[in-house]
């Protein structure tokens, strides 16, 4: 399989890339390319030019701070998996396979916004922010950035430059992914962040991916757990509540009914696993 004929632009800095992308609306930015190149080979897309942004070094960093962690959009899943970021590093280890994690980037994932991608469950649970740059720079919440499946809040000539997540010190966490075969997209993915004080839960965040058009937070389930004493009963009830936030569609990865039911199972696993840590 060969990609279609296309032009290629090597941008040395962000301004060159965004200028070219603004003038050529049918051009596409190339970061890790591990969604883009397969789509080119299948001729799902036929961009006029690829704009190679891989050499723009100021998009390639991870900078931990005491309150928040800033992640450059060209950071690979491998780099994020090694960066000790609560929840997000663990999520990165569950993406695809090792070779893909060596190339794929977080900026690429959220610009592509596949509804079954792994990061969105964690990013929504973490209240992540996304920095976008075109002619001007703006910062939006990940929740607003992810408008719909495959539809990020990006105007022509805009690129994701940075993802910002709170530090979540003293939080326990787990990302549980159910997959049909090794390296596949999620059937369902559940991200949980928890803060405990002795036997009670002080704060909890639950994010879901693959069971809606975009990632969602199961807020009612969170509220059931918040400020309660940890018990099997309350975890069971909250996990059942998480199921209300799953509106999956039937596809090759399973029927809608099955996916809805396993959402409860994976939610319970994620809560129990987080509590164990």
């Amino acid at each position: 399989m060969y990609p279609p004929k296309l032009g290629y632009v090597i941008a040395e800095n962000l301004e060159e890339a965004t200028d070219f992308l603004e003038k050529h609306e049918d051009a596409k930015a190339l970061a890790g390319g591990h969604s883009l190149i397969p789509m080119l080979k299948l001729r799902i897309i036929r961009p006029s030019y690829l704009v190679d942004i891989r050499r723009i070094s100021n998009l390639h960093f991870i900078s931990p701070g005491s309150d928040e962690i800033r992640i450059g959009s060209l950071s690979t899943h491998y780099e994020i998996s090694k960066a000790n970021i609560p929840l997000l590093s663990e999520t990165a280890t569950k993406i695809a396979d090792p070779q893909v994690r060596n190339m794929g980037t977080i900026g690429g994932v959220i610009s592509q916004l596949d509804p079954s991608a792994d990061y969105p469950a964690s990013l929504i649970a973490m209240d992540a922010k996304v920095k976008v740059k075109g002619k001007t720079e703006r910062t939006v919440s990940f929740k607003d950035f992810a408008k719909d499946m495959f539809t990020p809040d990006l105007n022509p000539g805009e690129l994701v430059t940075e993802i910002i997540v709170p530090a979540f010190k003293d939080y326990k966490f787990s990302y549980q992914k159910l997959e049909r075969k090794a390296g596949d997209y999620a059937i369902v993915g559940v991200a949980v962040l928890l803060k405990t004080d002795g036997e009670s839960i002080k704060d909890v965040r639950i994010g879901l991916t693959a069971v809606n058009n975009t990632a969602v937070r199961a807020t009612e389930a969170e509220n059931m757990l918040k400020d309660t004493r940890i018990s099997e009963e309350i975890i069971e009830k909250a996990s059942a509540k998480v199921m209300d936030y799953a509106n999956p569609v039937s596809d090759i990865r399973g029927s809608a009914e099955y996916k809805k039911k396993v959402t409860k199972v994976m939610a319970k696993r994620a809560i129990l696993e987080a509590l164990k840590r």
Binding site: M1, P3, Y8, I10, L30, G33, H34, I37, P38, K41, L50, D52, R54, Y78, D97, P98, Q99, V100, N102, M103, G183
Partner: peptide, 27 residues
Amino acid sequence: CDTSNCGACTIIMNGKSVKSCTVLGVE
């Protein structure tokens, strides 16, 4: 497979393993 699945085309590029069917020559 030519679809980034099977890994038969795996090489080491700049110190990291990659699937060379999913990288462009110019890249």
